[in-house]
């Protein structure tokens, strides 16, 4: 088997006395989607932030295409160019138009010309049906449109790995689908991704691998069929039952 895009070995992370992740092992092969599920505070977001080097880890290894990126001597800016992350709260830059948001990194980081970057941005905006909003500022867009723009911004730099942190949690239910359909498109394009979500139905559709996190530990993992339809761990069963009761399955 070829080198996985992402490999995590015995990762440990704490905030002060609070242990938020431990014994996390994960392999994400190319062109696959790994879905992290679990209650709020189970460590999903922290895991994504660790992978993106936004949080330093206490112990363990993170390998990107076989290269250790958890090495403190590594140039984090260089690594982050290969990773895209989309946040729950979009985090678009409010003082820039949508097109400027998307072209910032291609121009400043990848040193593309403005024309080239604009062309790329417009192509992506057109593909994801957002071209008419290119010159608007983020606050003039709906939540769903903002999140789509944020996803486009993160894929415009051609990341090796896309991290999606509960990208639909801040949206009202009607807008969730337009965002999820982008993720589905990216998946069928062959984008490798790790996503934290509460949308179990969606997880079933896109995931190649589902990991259930509980108190900073991956308690159960497998195909969506295994984990979501016939979970073996009692904690997973309990979590899915609560999700089901909340009407999200």
């Amino acid at each position: 088997m070829s080198t996985p895009v992402l490999e995590i070995v015995d990762l440990r992370k704490s905030f002060d006395q609070n242990l938020v992740l431990h014994d996390v092992n994960l392999v994400v092969p190319e062109h696959t989607a790994t879905v992290l599920i679990g209650a709020s505070g189970s460590g999903k977001s922290t895991l994504l932030r660790c992978i993106n080097l936004l949080e330093p880890i206490d112990d363990g290894l993170i390998l990107l295409d076989g290269q250790e990126i958890s090495d403190p001597a590594i140039d984090v800016d260089l690594i982050r160019r290969k990773l895209g992350i989309v946040f729950q709260s979009f985090n678009l830059f409010p003082h820039m138009t949508i097109r400027e948001n998307i072209t910032l990194a291609p121009i400043k980081v990848q040193r593309k010309s403005r024309d080239e970057a604009n062309e790329l941005a417009d192509e992506l905006l057109k593909r994801f049906d957002l071209l008419e909003k290119a010159d608007e500022y983020p606050d003039r867009l709906s939540g769903g449109q903002q999140q789509r723009a944020a996803i486009i911004r993160s894929i415009a730099v051609n990341p090796r790995l896309l991290l999606l942190d509960e990208v639909t949690s801040a949206l009202d239910p009607v807008l969730v689908n337009e965002v999820l359909s982008i993720v589905r498109d990216l998946k069928s394009d062959g984008m490798t991704m790790v996503l934290a979500t509460h949308e179990m139905g969606f997880a079933t559709q896109v995931a190649d691998q589902v990991c259930f996190l509980e108190s900073g530990l991956i308690l159960e993992r497998g195909t969506p069929e295994e984990v979501l339809r016939s979970p073996s761990h009692p904690k997973t069963k309990e979590f899915l039952k609560r999700v089901h009761e909340a009407g999200r399955l």
Partner: peptide
């Protein structure tokens, strides 16, 4: 979170200050 978004796009801390933080 604005800084996090900028850094995660690969901008250096100086670029983040110049293009994202200072204008706002």
């Amino acid at each position: 979170s604005q800084r996090a978004a900028a850094r995660s796009l690969g901008l250096t801390s100086r670029q983040t200050m110049r293009y994202v933080v200072l204008p706002q």
